[in-house]
């Protein structure tokens, strides 16, 4: 420490003619250095946090298995209740199942860990890294759940789909949208303690526009319409996702800093 200080001062003495010039440049260097450093850290932070989430989930498997069972039993309940349905209802029912599944799966993403541990993360990593890792994790979880739900649903509940690849793309887009929108809402409702009801109240209005577009897009896929008809909807979905993601990244630090 002492040696370093001496070294620093000697450097200052040696570079006195340059000191003014350096002083002018210093803020610039500082900014550049900070940005590049935090950039490197940021990706690594997100990666580590994501790995932590997955490891935690894998260790207990409680939430994962619970939600998987929830999906399958909901599908089965719907099948028993309806037996055979009109394609429009089939489609709507699938999205409603997915909606409730996603709310169930994501609502606990911030309440699982204790306050003390979250405080510990706060000292280690940036808030954006936390929200981004949670979003990525929830999107992955939703992709898995939606795929399982789709296969279970379409095997139990037979129905003709005109354009299966497009339908599957819709499901992927849907799980990405649910994941991004619900992560932020679960963060907000976790701060308000009574998560269950509040989560539903806060997330439904945010998800309704997404669901409207998703149902339209998947209906296009079921009818096997020309792909170019659906580009508008895909664009809107991507735009909504981008907006929600940006707003989440901007706002999450304020939730976090308590």
């Amino acid at each position: 420490m002492r040696a370093r200080r001496i070294q620093e001062s000697s450097v200052n003495v040696l570079l006195r003619p340059l000191s003014l010039f350096l002083l002018v440049l210093r803020p610039l260097c500082y900014v550049r250095k900070r940005v590049s450093l935090s950039d490197m850290n940021f990706v690594r932070q997100v990666y580590l946090l994501l790995r932590k989430e997955i490891t935690l989930e894998w260790r207990s498997k409680y939430a994962l298995n619970g939600v998987l069972l929830y999906v399958i039993s909901t599908v089965f309940v719907c099948y028993q209740a309806f037996k055979s349905v009109h394609p429009v209802i089939w489609n709507a029912l699938f999205w409603i199942i997915l909606l409730f599944t996603s709310i169930n799966a994501i609502s606990k993403s911030f309440t699982q860990e204790s306050k003390a541990r979250q405080l510990y993360y706060y000292t280690l990593v940036s808030a954006q890294a936390i929200i981004l890792s949670k979003i990525i994790y929830n999107v992955l979880l939703m992709l898995l759940l939606a795929t399982v739900a789709f296969f279970a649903y379409s095997t139990i509940f037979r129905n003709e789909i005109g354009d299966p690849p497009l339908y599957f793309i819709t499901i992927l887009l849907g799980s990405i949208s649910f994941g991004t929108a619900l992560t932020m809402v679960s963060g907000i409702s976790a701060k308000a303690n009574n998560s269950g009801t509040l989560m539903a109240i806060l997330s439904f209005p945010v998800l309704i526009p997404v669901i409207i577009v998703l149902i339209k897009l998947s209906k296009n896929a079921m009818d096997g319409l020309e792909r170019s008809v659906s580009y508008d909807e895909i664009g809107v979905l991507l735009a909504i996702n981008l907006i929600v993601l940006t707003v989440s990244l901007l706002l999450f630090p304020y939730i976090w800093r308590d």
Binding site: I188, K191, A192, V206, V244, V247, Y254
Partner: peptide, 13 residues
């Protein structure tokens, strides 16, 4: 704070 965050979040939607 929390309601301000939700308000900003809801506006683009």
């Amino acid at each position: 704070k929390i309601s301000a965050i939700y308000n900003i979040f809801a506006f683009p939607v």
